[in-house]
Amino acid sequence: MLFARLVLLVQALVWGGLGLLYWIRPYEMANLSGMLLMEPSSVSDARVFYGGHQFALALFLVFALRRRLLVRPALILVILVQLTLTLSRLLIAWTEGGMEWDAQLAGVVYRGVISALAIFALYWLERQSRNRQVVVREEPEPEERKADFEGL
């Protein structure tokens, strides 16, 4: 459980940090991926969709860190979001002829690594859960309890 929570904590910090950066410095963050924010509406869109979404996801992960029952769903969220973004970026690079070493490639590497770590953490949690179910055995009732019900 500790490893899974560490994966979630790292991802929450990354999403939270990026979300805040898109709110505070939308022009600079957009420029990292080659986008230009030309109109006030594009700045607000960058703040909302890049900043707001990432910050909301980070808040959910922080909430999940404090609730044992939400650790698995949070790991699944990280896997689905990050793996989808990774595979999408790789598909686009393949169809468009490659990718340079910049923020996009660094993002692909990070997303691939965090996806793999989240998959491993989820696998480990499932394995531990199965092992706990096998170890739990039914204990025989004490003799005095059986005697109470023999006459019925």
Results as ranks from 00 to 15, higher is better:
31 N>D: 09
143 E>I: 05
134 V>M: 08
10 V>F: 11
11 Q>N: 13
95 T>W: 12
113 V>F: 15
68 R>K: 13
21 L>P: 00
141 E>D: 13
64 A>F: 07
121 A>Q: 02
127 R>I: 01
134 V>Q: 14
149 F>M: 04
113 V>W: 14
80 L>E: 06
57 L>S: 10
78 V>E: 01
21 L>Q: 03
127 R>M: 06
74 A>P: 06
60 F>D: 04
36 L>F: 07
45 D>Y: 11
108 V>E: 02
37 L>T: 01
105 L>K: 04
16 G>N: 01
80 L>I: 09
78 V>Q: 01
133 Q>R: 15
149 F>T: 11
106 A>C: 03
57 L>A: 13
94 W>T: 06
68 R>G: 02
58 A>F: 00
39 E>T: 15
87 L>V: 13
145 R>I: 11
1 M>S: 13
148 D>M: 14
46 A>P: 07
5 R>D: 04
72 R>K: 15
53 H>V: 10
131 N>C: 04
94 W>G: 04
85 L>Q: 09
54 Q>G: 05
136 V>A: 15
68 R>M: 08
120 F>A: 12
114 I>D: 05
22 Y>D: 03
146 K>M: 11
28 E>W: 04
111 R>Q: 15
52 G>A: 02
112 G>W: 10
56 A>N: 06
136 V>M: 12
65 L>V: 02
102 D>H: 13
140 P>K: 14
76 I>Q: 10
40 P>F: 08
27 Y>Q: 14
21 L>V: 02
36 L>V: 04
21 L>I: 03
78 V>P: 02
96 E>A: 14
111 R>Y: 10
10 V>E: 09
88 S>P: 00
12 A>C: 05
141 E>H: 12
81 V>W: 09
68 R>W: 08
142 P>T: 05
152 L>E: 11
12 A>L: 01
127 R>N: 06
63 F>S: 07
97 G>I: 01
10 V>N: 06
86 T>F: 15
17 G>W: 11
127 R>F: 07
102 D>K: 11
20 L>H: 01
126 E>I: 04
39 E>K: 14
41 S>E: 13
33 S>P: 00
4 A>V: 04
146 K>Q: 13
98 G>A: 05
34 G>V: 00
72 R>D: 00
34 G>H: 01
124 W>F: 03
59 L>D: 05
70 L>S: 02
66 R>M: 12
40 P>G: 05
135 V>A: 15
75 L>Y: 06
12 A>M: 03
122 L>E: 08
140 P>L: 12
9 L>I: 10
107 G>H: 07
89 R>M: 12
94 W>S: 12
131 N>S: 10
119 I>A: 14
43 V>C: 03
70 L>T: 05
146 K>A: 10
130 R>G: 07
1 M>I: 06
104 Q>S: 12
123 Y>C: 04
143 E>N: 10
66 R>N: 06
62 V>H: 01
33 S>T: 12
125 L>K: 02
108 V>H: 09
87 L>C: 06
100 E>L: 12
113 V>I: 15
120 F>R: 12
121 A>W: 02
32 L>M: 12
66 R>L: 15
133 Q>V: 03
103 A>R: 09
6 L>D: 09
43 V>A: 09
42 S>H: 11
23 W>F: 15
